[in-house]
Amino acid sequence: MAADEGKRRGLGRGLAALIGDDAPADKRGQPAATISPNTVPIEFLKANPFQPRRDFTKEDLADLTASVAEKGVIQPIVVRPVSGATNSFEIVAGERRWRAAQAAKLDRVPVVVRDLSDAETLEIAIIENVQRADLNPIEEADGYDRLMEEFSYTQADVSKLIGKSRSHVANTLRLRSLPKKVRGFLAAGDLSAGHARAIMGHDDAVALAKQIIADGLSVREAEALGKKPFKAVKAKKASVSAEKDADTKSLERNIADSLGLAVSIDHKGDTGGKVLINYKTLEQLDEICRRLANGKI
């Protein structure tokens, strides 16, 4: 019952309400412990076990680390005390800032301390990442599933919590039924959720996913592909790869080295061709757009 009451209190409040000015009260009705903000030694902080994001690559953190090294951590990290421990805090929101601060070799970081339940901690972690598009579709789906399994949320509850439609929540949760290999493509950013839904339930979903990636198919093309028996579909990529000449391969390597991203060129002679650039994060996409605008690719 207490967990349900805590859930109802948290639902619909949003990230600002949960960690903003309206600090939660403790059992005596007094405001919970709050430092607004203070700095603590970086070793006092520990990772959030409810963090839905599992992948923190050096590439993802590179720009943030450079910013932190130059300007410090501007936005305080939201933490909660670790029960029964002294000088120990669990990160609620801001794990990327904490990791970047470690990489930048900072000794102390600013924090705001909040007294939050496990359910509220998971809520905040999911909301923060979803709002900033920091989660890949599988991490997002697993986060929703965890709210439902561990804290008895319904799909309607999750929809209200994150401010997205119930159909979005339902469609995201369905991604968990994909084969493990296809979920891996999603998590790596090789496939979009739209591509994955197009082949969901297909007997040859893994093979179809590989062809979508290899041929750089659009979601609409993937939908058409998913409606056909896979054996009736020609696997074009093998022949294309075999026909690539040394100049094309060299150009692929040059662009890939410049961007730090995987690049594939499908040149069809006089009829033109296409260039496929694979990115995993919005920051990488922004960098591609910036370079295109400045003519530096």
Score class of each variant (00 low, 15 high):
Glu140Gly: 07
Tyr153Pro: 10
Phe89His: 05
Ala133Asp: 15
Ala196Thr: 09
Arg183Trp: 10
Leu116Ser: 03
Ala193Lys: 13
Asp142Thr: 07
Arg176Val: 06
Val113Cys: 06
Glu139Leu: 00
Arg146Phe: 13
Ser83Gln: 07
Ala101Arg: 04
Ser167Cys: 02
Ile126Val: 11
Arg146Asn: 12
Ala170Gln: 03
Ser117Gln: 06
Leu186Thr: 01
Arg197Glu: 11
Ala104Asn: 04
Ser167Val: 08
Gln131His: 12
Gly163Cys: 07
Phe89Trp: 06
Arg80Ala: 13
Asn136Trp: 06
Gly72Ala: 03
Glu123Val: 04
Arg183Met: 12
Asp157Asn: 12
Arg96His: 05
Arg146Lys: 15
Leu106Trp: 12
Glu95Thr: 07
Met148Trp: 02
Asp134Leu: 15
Gln75Glu: 13
Ala156Ile: 01
Arg197His: 08
Ile127Gly: 04
Leu178Asp: 12
Ile126Met: 02
Ala187Tyr: 01
Ser88Ile: 03
Val73Glu: 02
Val130Ile: 09
Asp190Asn: 09
Ala133Phe: 15
Val113Phe: 03
Pro81Asp: 11
Asn87Phe: 02
Ala85Gln: 14
Ala69Pro: 02
Asp115Trp: 01
Glu140Ser: 08
Asp134Met: 14
Gln75Leu: 10
Gly184Gln: 10
Lys71Thr: 06
Phe89Leu: 02
Leu135Glu: 00
Glu139Cys: 01
Glu149Lys: 15
Gly143Leu: 05
Leu116Cys: 03
Ala104Tyr: 09
Leu122Asn: 01
Val82His: 06
Ala198Ile: 10
Ile74Cys: 00
Arg97Leu: 14
Ala133Arg: 14
Gln102Lys: 15
Ala69Phe: 01
Ser192Met: 03
Asn136Ile: 01
Ile127Cys: 06
Asn136Leu: 01
Leu135Val: 00
Ala187Val: 01
